[in-house]
Simulated scan of single mutants.
Amino acid sequence: MSSQRDLLDQLTAEHRAVEVLFGEMAGLPLGDPQRKEFLDEASRALVRHAAAEERHLHPLVRRLPNGDELIERDRADHSTIEALLGALRACSVESQDFNRLVAQLDERTTRHMSAEEAQIFPALRETVNPTELLALGDEVRSTEAAEPAVPRPQPPSALPPDDLRPPQRSLRERVRGFFNS
């Protein structure tokens, strides 16, 4: 029973769902316990999504002329995202580390999804039979629910460098610093 959403449409819809979860998190005050709930939901979605990509998308990508390179980059992105998710599991929602890690996760995930949608998906749309994409879309929907929703353990070295700008000091802190220097 096909819902008429092929593999690429399914993965794109999952990207949009994750973006909504990050948007919901961003709309909450820092330290709000609901941010952790949204993160947990995003974590489950991202882990299942990565497993679906590795199982169903990567064999198709391998057919592309630069497929092995694209898969290598995709897997590196998945490892980085899973390392960030693992680090976040150990953080309290009230900590500054939590907020910085969420910001890094959002940035890395958005960059990953944009690259897939701009480079990989159009190339596959041109080269893969639409019937095959439709069948794989059905397969992804039926198997994703069975995927584990916990990030695979990653070595600490898999965490990306914290390249986010440091938070700005408040006006009060800047005025105090001005008069105390």
Score class of each variant (00 low, 15 high):
105 L>D: 01
139 E>T: 12
121 F>R: 00
60 L>G: 11
167 P>A: 13
29 P>E: 10
154 Q>K: 13
58 H>E: 10
47 V>Q: 07
164 L>C: 06
26 A>V: 12
72 E>A: 14
88 L>W: 03
70 L>K: 05
113 M>L: 13
164 L>V: 06
5 R>V: 12
29 P>W: 11
145 A>H: 12
164 L>E: 05
3 S>T: 15
134 L>C: 03
129 N>M: 07
120 I>L: 01
103 A>H: 02
46 L>S: 02
57 L>M: 01
95 S>E: 10
23 G>N: 07
27 G>R: 01
97 D>C: 01
52 A>N: 02
155 P>Y: 04
1 M>S: 15
149 A>W: 08
40 D>S: 06
79 S>Q: 07
150 V>D: 14
130 P>F: 03
120 I>H: 00
8 L>I: 06
149 A>H: 13
105 L>N: 04
37 E>P: 02
129 N>E: 12
90 A>D: 13
27 G>C: 03
23 G>H: 09
82 E>Q: 13
85 L>F: 10
49 H>C: 03
89 R>D: 08
71 I>K: 03
88 L>A: 04
44 R>M: 14
178 F>C: 03
102 V>R: 03
53 E>D: 05
26 A>S: 14
147 E>A: 07
47 V>M: 00
114 S>P: 04
42 A>G: 08
43 S>C: 13
89 R>N: 05
56 H>V: 06
76 A>F: 00
39 L>H: 07
1 M>H: 15
177 G>C: 09
122 P>Y: 05
130 P>M: 01
21 L>H: 08
165 R>T: 15
129 N>G: 01
163 D>V: 04
59 P>G: 04
164 L>P: 05
114 S>H: 14
136 L>A: 03
36 K>D: 02
5 R>A: 08
168 Q>S: 10
60 L>C: 07
103 A>R: 03
137 G>A: 02
91 C>G: 04
169 R>C: 01
173 E>M: 10
180 N>A: 15
96 Q>F: 11
77 D>R: 09
30 L>E: 15
92 S>L: 03
28 L>W: 07
164 L>M: 08
119 Q>Y: 05
170 S>D: 09
19 E>Y: 13
48 R>F: 00
107 E>N: 06
18 V>Q: 11
41 E>Y: 04
92 S>R: 07
32 D>Y: 00
173 E>L: 09
38 F>K: 09
127 T>A: 11
180 N>Y: 15
87 A>P: 01
117 E>Q: 06
41 E>A: 10
122 P>A: 08
88 L>V: 02
147 E>Q: 12
82 E>L: 02
94 E>H: 11
167 P>L: 10
176 R>T: 15
3 S>N: 14
180 N>L: 15
21 L>C: 12
111 R>A: 13
156 P>Q: 05
128 V>Q: 01
18 V>A: 15
34 Q>N: 04
